[in-house]
Amino acid sequence: MKSIFRTLTAVALSLPLLGGLAQAAERVELDHDGTTLVGHMEIAPGSEIADGVVLMVHGTLAHGQMEIMRSMQSLLAESGYNALAINLSLGQDAREGMYDCASTHRHKHENAVDEIAAWAEWLKGEGADRLAVMGHSRGGNQVARYLAGEPDPAVEKAVLLAPQTWTAGYHAKDYQKRYDAELAPLLEKAKTLVAEGSGDEVMEMDFIYCEDTTATAASVVSYYREDPLMDTPTVLGAVSVPTLVIVAGADTTITDLEEKMAEPAKEEHIEMTVVSGSDHMFRDLFLYDAADAATAFIGWH
């Protein structure tokens, strides 16, 4: 058994700015259970899809072309790695950009697992002989859940960037702090509606990052129930695919990841790397360190 705890520091300031790396990624679509899923594919110079693809999953209510995902995709391409950055549908057809808080939330956290699986199957159909999966923040938890289920045999490696953690009572405390309101009565109402078969009933409330919005009871239960599987280090106990967890050393969003990874990282197939000084989004030059760790771990080149 082994445990790897490497601490990385930012690379030299002489490196080019991330904004200068951006290249046009091709928009691709996939029909999944009547919903059009959208992704953006970047093929590395001199490469082809058969050389393998990194399937990338974004964080909460975000999208595959947000800054961290687009910049990471460009850095992967510079290192010779093809990458597909997907937009989780979040219950919307052909969704692009950040989630519109004016729209009723009809999505569930766990829906991402099926969409990741659908994209993996699509990539194989397009000729990808091997895959790696990468997820950031909530997307890291969703990737871990995919891996803990029945991942495609083509998936060889996984990289989780500052993946979500959870402890009992977290949602109630966070909701109180964010919205100065009690979560318990809202969650109990949602649970009752779901139990009665009325999970599609819409509730008016503050939801995740959206103030004064609406969400179905089923969505409320999915995101706010007490669920140990929201804790990525816990989920990793059921994952057999070699996985690298990259901790942001100065993360103020996910503050307990390094501590919680102490036990999982003792497993032979689980590694942990700390990017010292980085915030949750791996802004600026810290993303280079994360990309270097990711490509070295995947090890295709």
Rank of each mutant, 00 (worst) to 15 (best):
F5R: 04
V11H: 09
L17K: 15
L18Y: 04
E26T: 11
V28S: 02
V28P: 06
L30D: 12
G34M: 04
T36P: 02
L37C: 04
G39D: 05
M41Q: 11
A44V: 01
A50Q: 12
A50G: 14
L55H: 13
G59V: 08
G59W: 08
H63W: 05
H63V: 00
G64H: 07
M66C: 15
M66T: 14
M66F: 13
S71D: 15
M72I: 00
Q73R: 15
A77K: 07
A77C: 10
Y81T: 11
A83N: 07
A83Q: 07
L84W: 11
S89H: 08
D93Q: 06
G97M: 03
T104C: 14
T104E: 10
H105D: 00
A112F: 05
A117L: 06
A120P: 09
L123R: 07
K124D: 00
G125V: 03
D129L: 11
L131T: 02
S137H: 02
S137F: 01
N141P: 12
V143F: 13
R145N: 10
Y146T: 13
A154R: 05
A154I: 02
A158R: 01
L161V: 02
A162H: 00
Q164G: 11
T167Y: 15
Y175K: 03
Y175C: 04
Q176A: 15
K177F: 12
A181M: 03
E182V: 02
E182I: 01
L183Q: 07
A184M: 13
P185K: 05
K189M: 06
K189Q: 14
K191C: 05
M203K: 12
E204P: 03
E204R: 13
E204V: 02
M205Y: 11
D206C: 07
C210S: 05
E211K: 14
T213V: 00
M230T: 10
M230C: 13
D231P: 09
T243Q: 07
L244Q: 08
A248Q: 07
G249R: 02
A250R: 01
I254Y: 06
D256K: 12
A262S: 04
P264E: 09
E267N: 14
E268W: 13
H269A: 10
I270H: 15
E271T: 04
T273Y: 06
G277W: 01
F282G: 06
R283N: 15
R283T: 10
L287K: 05
D289H: 13
D292G: 14
A294L: 08
G299I: 01
